[in-house]
């Protein structure tokens, strides 16, 4: 018994390393490529730009990691972000005469965004966990509903934040502490908290257990329905948080806000090593995945090596390659 453990022990460790390093290697390769193509790639300005624009998808993808680890999926997050942004802008515009331009107005707007995100996540969660409709169908439906709602709220055009309120709120995206802008700080805090929750709390372990085998999780006295609902609620709140960072950037929302964010977030989660069918999740991997996705765009813009018509193709190939690197690690067993 002890013999078998001893002989087997080194093998999984090496395997784990390869598996873990896959996305990191891809990220390092991309950074090296970017730096060799353009000297401005590693400049402070460009690095800040890329990190800040990654933060929306990044914050959402951290929540998505929990949903996917628990064996779920959420296709509605992009539309939900657009809808929450629309509701936030409209309520802030409506509150300007009451609260005036100031911290109170911004806090009220943030509160509205978080509550709207929580409510939307709760609705998905209840339909999936309690009414027991397939997550794919519930969130696909929600995707259409929120996209239409924001188009309807905007009357087909664009919802714009009151100009003075926008000027006051603008620093939330563009300013920060010691040259690190707020979206980057919030993304980092969310990622670190997410990693801690995933690794060191019962919630994280229960998510993995639920994704691995629902029956076993149920017999292990995990409150499966409540847990599943909680993952969607967490994701909804994080969508609200991402929206809080997004709105001050351009001060507007329309039917074309957040298009395909859901797929980018899911792709980032999978690139990072989380298993799409659930059971195993890695929050820091997700962060690497998000950075890989935004770096590809950034490098293509900075380098203009090939026809811009082919950007999508290059993106697709790199995404698949990043996952292939991991598969090689796995296939050793």
């Amino acid at each position: 018994m002890s013999d078998t453990i001893q002989t087997k022990a080194p093998a999984p460790r090496r395997r784990l390393n390869l598996h873990v390093l896959g996305p990191v290697l891809a990220l390092i390769a991309l950074i090296a490529l970017g730096a060799s193509l353009n000297s401005n790639f590693l400049s402070y300005g460009n690095v800040t730009n890329v990190l800040a624009r990654s933060s929306f998808i990044g914050i959402i993808a951290v929540g998505m990691t929990f949903v996917i680890t628990a064996g779920g999926i959420d296709l509605s997050v992009g539309s939900m972000a657009a809808f929450v942004a629309g509701v936030m802008i409209m309520s802030m515009n409506a509150l300007v005469p009451v609260l005036g331009i100031g911290v109170a107005l911004v806090l009220a707007g943030m509160g509205v965004a978080l509550i709207a995100g929580l409510a939307a996540g709760l609705l998905n969660g209840v339909l999936i966990a309690k009414v027991r409709i397939e997550a794919f169908i519930v969130t696909l439906g929600a995707m259409g509903v929120y996209r239409s709602l924001v188009t309807w709220l905007a009357d087909g055009g664009t919802l714009s934040l009151n100009f003075d309120a926008r000027s006051f709120y603008r620093p939330v995206y563009y300013d920060g502490i010691l040259g690190v802008t707020w979206p980057i700080i919030v993304f980092a805090v969310v990622a670190i908290l997410g990693e801690l929750v995933m690794r060191h709390t019962p919630f994280g372990r229960h998510c993995a257990a639920l994704g691995a085998n629902e029956q076993v999780a149920r017999y292990s006295a995990i409150k499966v329905d409540r847990l599943r609902m909680a993952t969607y609620v967490v994701l909804g709140v994080l969508v609200g948080l991402a929206t809080i960072m997004y709105v001050p950037r351009l001060g507007s929302a329309s039917g074309s806000t957040g298009v395909l964010w859901e797929l980018e977030a899911i792709a980032a989660v999978i690139i990072g090593g989380t298993v799409l069918k659930g059971g195993y999740g890695r929050v820091w991997g997700t962060v690497v995945g998000v950075l890989i996705l935004s770096l590809i765009d950034n490098i293509l813009n900075l380098a203009s090596i090939v026809s811009p018509y082919l950007n999508g193709a290059i993106q697709g190939v790199i995404v698949v390659l990043a996952v292939v690197l991991q598969r090689e690690g796995k296939s050793t067993d």
Binding site: N38, G45, N49, L250, S256, V259
Partner: peptide
Amino acid sequence: LDMQHGNWNRDDAFNVMQDFLSK
């Protein structure tokens, strides 16, 4: 200097222009 697709979208145009400005 450069032509890239911003897809008639505010967010995409913002990202592309940020990169043009870095470049």
